[in-house]
Simulated scan of single mutants.
Amino acid sequence: MRATTIHAPYDIRLEDVPDPTIDGPTDALVKVVASCICGSDLWPYRGENKVTPGRRIGHEFVGIVEEIGGDVRTVKPGDFVIAPFVVSDGTCPHCLAGYQTACQNMVGYGSDQADGGQGEYVKLPYADGTLVATPEVPDDSLVPSLLTLSDVMGTGWHAARAARVKAGDTVVVVGDGAVGLCGVLAAARMGAERVVAMSRHEPRQKLAAEFGATDIISERGDAARDAVLELTDGVGADAVLECVGTGQAMTTAFDVARAGATVGFVGVPHGVEAPIPTMFRRNVGLAGGAAPVRAYLPDLMADVLAGEINPGRVFDSELPLAEVAEGYKAMHERRAIKVLLRP
């Protein structure tokens, strides 16, 4: 089979690797229908995370179950399944509390126990605790939106939930990548009256507006803060979604939050420090982290299947798996919001 591997910064390859096989009772083997490139994949791609040469990469995919281990009960061969971005057992105390990304037996894709998601097949353990099957094999037009539920839509939803977005709120979303855009969609769906998207890129601004953004701010830094304060009569936002993971993004998030607001953060932190004095002085909270998308998946899947949301529109590029290196380059150069890959 073919699978994507990373060898060094900016060195992505599609290579032949051994075919995966079921070797444990909780395993499932999934034939990938579609996978994608995540913004967090760009951290090792750019050399900002350590690269292990030859490691399989990718953690978002949907596909058809081909084979299962003897203890698997919730999915069966022939099922179309959505795979959250981490493998969780579904039975530990953290999973039962709804925080599967803190599973005591969590497995990452691209490890010895689970194949990377950007390939033709994926073998993973803990199928019952991880995979979610659709009621029937969906129409191909729904695949992009169902694929977003493996990460970015659930992550945007987690940012809004952590920020305690409620009906009537003014919400600011920091970040215009796929997660930020899904955060706009989540905030609008939760009933926010005003959703302010921070974006400097016209295609992303357009999609943010179509997802429910009422205002667009293209400035950054102090100018962005001033623009939000002007929009809110000097008060600031009721809730802020930080969907980037950089120090500048976190600073902006706190700068635009009103007293008593909460910043929901889901950007993978790189060079970020919580501004404790500001939090204390203005009673601004900070909540969030690695999104437990498995907890949100059933409800969001129902919304997609009912046509209530269409988050798959964040995919503005679709490439065959053979061109995965170009997909990484396009996202790195911000020529694409998010790239969908077909085997």
Rank of each mutant, 00 (worst) to 15 (best):
V75S: 03
H201L: 14
D139L: 12
V32M: 09
C95F: 05
I216N: 05
P84T: 07
E15Y: 10
A187K: 02
K166A: 15
G271V: 06
F265V: 14
K123Y: 11
V30L: 10
E202K: 14
Y109N: 03
I216Y: 04
I216G: 03
V65Q: 05
L229K: 06
G312V: 00
K31Q: 14
V263T: 13
K206N: 13
A188H: 10
G180C: 06
N105L: 07
I64E: 08
T170D: 05
T246G: 07
A97G: 13
L241M: 09
K329S: 09
E308F: 14
S111I: 03
L14T: 00
L29Y: 07
Q100R: 08
T170W: 10
C95M: 06
R161P: 07
A28H: 04
L297Y: 03
G288P: 12
R189S: 14
A102I: 13
V240W: 05
L305Q: 12
V339D: 01
V284H: 01
I6W: 00
D112R: 12
E323M: 12
T21F: 08
V244T: 03
S141L: 13
M279Q: 10
G168L: 07
G78W: 02
L149R: 02
A187H: 02
A178C: 10
D112M: 11
Y328K: 01
A97E: 14
V173F: 08
A224N: 00
N49F: 15
D140N: 14
A192M: 06
E193W: 11
G267Y: 01
G180I: 04
D238A: 08
H158V: 10
L142P: 00
G271F: 06
T214W: 10
I37R: 01
G175M: 05
A127C: 12
E193G: 15
V107S: 04
G307H: 08
L96T: 14
P320H: 09
V266P: 02
D112L: 13
A167G: 15
D27G: 08
D139F: 06
P144S: 06
P125C: 08
G264C: 10
Q100V: 09
T4C: 11
V304L: 08
D89R: 12
G24D: 13
S88Y: 03
S145R: 01
V65H: 04
A127E: 03
V263D: 12
G110E: 00
E193I: 05
P44N: 09
V65F: 06
A253C: 09
E48M: 12
A208N: 03
N105G: 07
R2E: 08
V268L: 04
G119S: 02
A290N: 15
E219K: 12
D255R: 06
T130M: 08
L142T: 02
T101D: 04
G212M: 01
T246L: 09
M153N: 09
L207K: 00
V244I: 02
E333S: 14
G156A: 11
H94N: 15
G236K: 03
K338P: 01
M106V: 15
P269I: 07
T278A: 15
